[in-house]
């Protein structure tokens, strides 16, 4: 497996770091090699934050920053107006978006040309978790877009990391796996 690099865009407190951690921990549990790390620096609730994960089939001997991710996850649609989320995305890379809008609207509004995975994560999170905390939902969107880690192992890890709120998050994650739509890149 070629090393896969993933960037998570969220706001401080939305769990971007937690979802990167769950993904990497699950990959390691599955016998792969992985790293998860925050964008190094102060942690501030509400501010735009970035977290990263690397997944590989062999030991990762690379501690540089992730500049050209294969996947970008956007946990909060309001970030699209603040942050160039497609920045550095590798050719052939995928943007996983939390949005209630359809593909045509998203492409028109934000100029995305890359492969897109779209999921109304706010709605799923509100319905399943009771709060618009979308980090675990977005992992479902990511794994629908690419088979990076076995979703069953991710669900187990999610359950262990999150404890009491685990079951609701697992349900939201599984719904996201089913409801995400994937749209190939446009020239």
């Amino acid at each position: 497996m070629e090393t896969q690099e993933i960037r998570f865009h969220g706001r401080g407190g939305q769990g971007a770091v937690t979802s990167a951690t769950i993904l990497a921990t699950a990959a390691i549990r599955q016998g792969r090699f992985a790293q998860a790390f925050p964008s190094f620096g102060p942690e501030r609730r509400g501010a735009p934050v970035v977290a990263y994960a690397r997944i590989a089939g062999a030991q990762i001997r690379n501690r540089t920053a992730i500049q050209q991710p294969h996947f970008v996850l956007v946990l909060d649609p309001s970030l699209l107006r603040l942050v160039q989320v497609e920045h550095g995305l590798r050719p052939g890379g995928t943007v996983v978006l939390n949005t209630a809008k359809d593909e045509a609207t998203v492409r028109k509004e934000f100029g995305f040309r890359s492969r897109l995975a779209l999921i109304d994560a706010n709605r799923i999170a509100r319905e399943e978790i009771g709060r618009p905390i979308t980090n675990t939902v977005m992992l479902g969107g990511l794994l629908r877009a690419a088979e990076l880690v076995d979703p069953k192992v991710v669900a187990e890890t999610m359950q262990e990391v999150l404890g009491a709120i685990g079951p609701r998050n697992v349900k939201a994650f599984e719904r996201a796996m089913a409801e995400t739509t994937v749209h190939e890149a446009r020239g």
Partner: peptide, 12 residues
């Protein structure tokens, strides 16, 4: 051990 570069990384 290096701050952030190691301290904040989840790894095996």
């Amino acid at each position: 051990f290096d701050g952030f570069m190691l301290s904040h990384v989840v790894e095996p």
